[in-house]
Design a binder for these strands. Sequence first.
RNA 1: GGCUGGUUGGCAGAGUGGUUAUGCAGCGGCCUGCAAAGCCGUGGACGGCGGUUCGAUUCCGCCAUCAGCCUCCA
Length: 459
Amino acid sequence: MLKIYNNLTNKKEIFIPIEPGKIRMYVCGITVYDYCHIGHSRAYIVFDMVARFLRHLGYDVTYIRNITDIDDKIIQRANENGEDFHQLTTRFIKAMHEDFDQLNILMPDLEPKATDHIPAILTMIETLIDKGFAYQAENGDVYFAVNEFNKYGELSGKRVEDLRAGERVDVDTNKRDPMDFVLWKMAKENEPFWESNYGKGRPGWHIECSAMSTEMLGNHFDIHGGGQDLQFPHHENEIAQSECCTGEKFVNYWMHNGFVRVNEEKMSKSLGNFFTIRDVLKEYRAEEIRFFILSSHYRSQINYSDEQLDQARSGLERLYAALLDVEFGDVPKDTEYQQRFELAMNDDFNTAEAIAVLFDLTRDVNRAKAENSPEVAALGSLLKYLANLLGLLELNAAEFLKSSVTDDGLSNADIDLKVEQRQQAKKDKNWAMADQIRDELTAAGIVLEDNVDGTRWRR
RNA sequence: GGCUGGUUGGCAGAGUGGUUAUGCAGCGGCCUGCAAAGCCGUGGACGGCGGUUCGAUUCCGCCAUCAGCCUCCA
């Protein structure tokens, strides 16, 4: 029985889909004006894992992850670069897909872009105005009137009174209430715009998610996810817009992943302490990043550091090493390992616990190997199968262990030759020579492992 | 100030009202020409103070402390 921690109630709840056997899930994607960083990678690895596991449970999942391709930062960056905003977003959408692909993040079923859904956005704004939940201010901008929605603050646990008292809310004289947020923003000179009843402008950030999720998943759907920083105000605003527009409950389960921190501080663009995915991929294998992310529960905060990534590397290499020489075959059914794995995952996607099960299974695989047991194939196949559910251990073990992201100047053939030379030295009992070759390779980051069949190496 | 969520062994990180997390690192052993990998064994923990309980790291309260949100942010 699947339990999900629901931010609407701040409790773990038994998951019940709206329509039996089907799950409709929407996750807020990125604003494409720069390369994705490790914080982004966490959010999308996490929800990729969620979608994979829900499908494993047999659900027919419709997973939507949008792209915000118009907003202030995009316009600003495009201006700085002296290029059309569309050119900018196209470039970074491509980069995002490349990065995500490396991290084995599967494509969502639909990946709508805000600019492709302006009509749906305008329709929703019109409905909100008609129903009295939104108004056009003197400057032409259209705002949502927070005051008209009495459930405002339900998701984030905030009270409108407290928010109003806050000193950090900008006082904008165009708004009736400082908490009101923009739905349609008038275009300034030389800014991209779309025609509307309210004038030439562009959508506010929050409305696109409401419009696109409702358009594609219906008024009421199962799961909505995103980073913890989106809980307020973004998701709060989505609820307000959608429920006021449709008169129905918007989402049943809200999920938010925790942040990635750097030196005990949130990784973010404004702090400038972010590491882009492509930079990290110069030092670590993509799967090491994925393993690092999934080693902790998705709601906890994690700290990014080389030490963490090094530990992830060691752990992942242990798992892959167990798969060496395994002849994969049928995956045994109804094993205790799978039960434990699923129990962990059913408990609010506890990947840390699930990975611990993989390590227990790994010991069993290694033990079977040491004993030359016929169980090796079955246990190894099970390990690969369970790990694959998390998007891990999909590569060939030998190739993975020989792969490297850093250039040590040695080709595989170079190494093979050295290893061969050392084999001869060993045969001649020339231990000094054998050790010298091994030391050379060790210095280059190559690890040698002798066994009865010969010598295996990895980077 | 309001609201969230944390505080577990050298590091990372799960979990539990009384019993082994798991990984990395350490120590001892097996294996090995020596190693490495692997296997076997092993030490080491639950922020502080109260309370509930036969018994609390686990439940409750208070305190301390950290991070986050309240402004764009995954």
